[in-house]
């Protein structure tokens, strides 16, 4: 996994709450068996509307998503993370993320930075006034900066370390394979087996 220390780019103000993963990528796009090429499914239904914020030419090169509360609710599809990344997003800011989406993002290297809703509102206003506004999400310093806005971001310590180091979870776990074997040897015999 690529490491993430900080990222600077332009941002998309998405004034919606409860953006569920069916909106991020509808089910019809989930049939592929690769990890690539999901950018066409990103917000597919909303993008059919010419007025949708992502369709605006002045937001063509965005790499940071600034969304309303409860982002990523619903289905566990990691395709939602891949769609955002394939499109070019490096970070999502929201005042509250759904658990599974946030976990998936951490595994795939997409930063989900939690900030107060007041910060989201300030960013929306600032970006709408100036779509070229440079926004920096700094994982090392644990803050977001945009013009005069400087605010702390809330991110789990362990996830932050993994992202900054670009570490693969499975490799970390397999270093403890002896502990797994020991645990297995003590499992009750009545527990079910599938085969």
């Amino acid at each position: 996994m690529e490491s993430f220390v900080r990222h600077t780019g332009t941002a998309l103000p998405l004034r919606r709450s409860n953006v569920d993963t069916d909106q991020i990528i509808p089910a019809e796009y989930l049939k592929r068996i690769t990890r690539h090429g999901f950018e066409d499914g990103l917000f597919a239904a909303w993008r059919k509307d010419p007025g949708f914020v992502l369709n605006q030419p002045h937001h063509a090169d965005v790499s940071i998503l600034v969304a309303g509360p409860d982002f990523g609710t619903g289905s566990s599809r990691e395709h939602a993370v891949w769609a955002l990344q394939n499109y070019g997003f490096k970070a999502v800011l929201s005042s509250r993320f759904a658990d599974i989406f946030r976990g998936n993002s951490g595994k795939g290297g997409l930063l989900t930075a939690q900030v107060d809703q007041s910060v989201i509102e300030a960013l929306w206003t600032a970006i709408e006034a100036n779509p070229d506004l440079e926004v920096t999400v700094d994982l090392e310093e644990r803050e977001v900066r945009a013009g005069s806005i400087v605010a702390p971001i809330d991110v789990d310590d362990y996830v932050r370390w993994r992202l900054m180091e670009g570490l693969d979870d499975i490799g970390i776990t397999l270093a403890h394979v002896d502990a797994i074997s020991t645990f297995e040897s003590n499992r009750p015999s009545f527990m079910p087996k599938t085969a």
């Binding site: 990691e78 599974i100 595994k107 789990d156 394979v177």
Partner: peptide, 20 residues
């Protein structure tokens, strides 16, 4: 509980998950 595809791979490989 539900998990994403990276976690599916993790469980397939290790039969465990790192969780808070």
């Amino acid at each position: 509980f539900g998990i994403g595809t990276s976690e599916v791979e993790h469980v397939l490989a290790t039969q465990t998950l790192p969780l808070k």
